[in-house]
Amino acid sequence: MSDVNGKPAEGLMGSERRRLLIQEYGIFIAFLILVVVLSVSNPYFLTAGNISNVLLQTSINGVLAIGMTFVILTRGIDLSVGSVVALAGIVSASFATTSATAAVSGAPYPVFVPIAVGLAVGVACGGVVGAIVSRFAVPAFVATLGMLSAARGLTLIYGNGRPVPALVPEFRWIGTGNILGIPLPVVILAIVFAVSWWVLTRTRFGRYIYAVGGNPHAAKTSGINVTRIRFSVYVISGALAGLAGMILSARTGSALPQAGIAYELDAIAAVVIGGTSLAGGVGRVTGTLIGALIIGVMNNGLDLMGIQSYYQQILKGALIVGAVMLDQKRNQDA
């Protein structure tokens, strides 16, 4: 019996306040501790060059994880993002290449064309998945597992299993350019984050997403079009996967058919580490960003320490499970 029993508002007690602080900002604190430890143990860590490098490496997973946050908030999951990254990457690249064998006729097009095409591919994949999940009540796990396989297959067919090389510099700029010294992918991540934060916390659509994830039945009886909300979150996730696919191929200078494999797992990891509940309705995109940064910083730190990447995977696994264990413990204490 933990109800309030109608006690009037009293000031929060010290321990209560501390608990709430940890609950709200625990992930920030963990992140800061990680940064401090790495800065102390390795002088190179806090240099501008390395910070820029970490952010750059985080940008693709960050964009995917933010899209994933929308989906997970509605009790869904999107396993297809890695394959959509590859498909959008290769299709957009075919509009931006000078290679005679891999290009669509008329390529290279002005840079906004491949960008629009890449986004459209992402939206289309998300739309198909969203329609299947929301209209036909297929579990998101199954529907997106199907898309994971299908989009990969489409990628291989589209490029005949070969990469699309020789991308024009204007397109490559998406992945390699700078604005005021900040790498463009990092700028894109910042914009995606800011817009998503605004949508989720300040708009009606954001409220709908939390309501649908928190209790779809209550949302429905409150007049919310649950089907439409479910559909839209997959479109958002698809669009962001398309964007991430273009960043990736622009960075590498060519689009690879095997790009993005297992990217969905890192994205889900970032969301979960960031404190978003897989049961839906609870979570914040700020947490997701920090979650993605934690993964990025950890990988970078371990690299700097000269630890093999195989061990990094073990640590990442432990981190995901540990974060959720802490979360559960916190919920029990609360």
Binding site: R204, R207, Y208, Y210, A211, G213, G214, N215, H217, A218, A219, K220, T221, S222, G223, I224, S277, G280, G281, V282
Partner: peptide, 18 residues
């Protein structure tokens, strides 16, 4: 079917008037 239990009192009161 009435409440979003993961949300606040405020959020629930506003739920049908968004």
């Amino acid at each position: 079917t009435g409440l979003n239990l993961t949300d606040s009192v405020r959020g629930n009161i506003g739920l049908a008037s968004l």
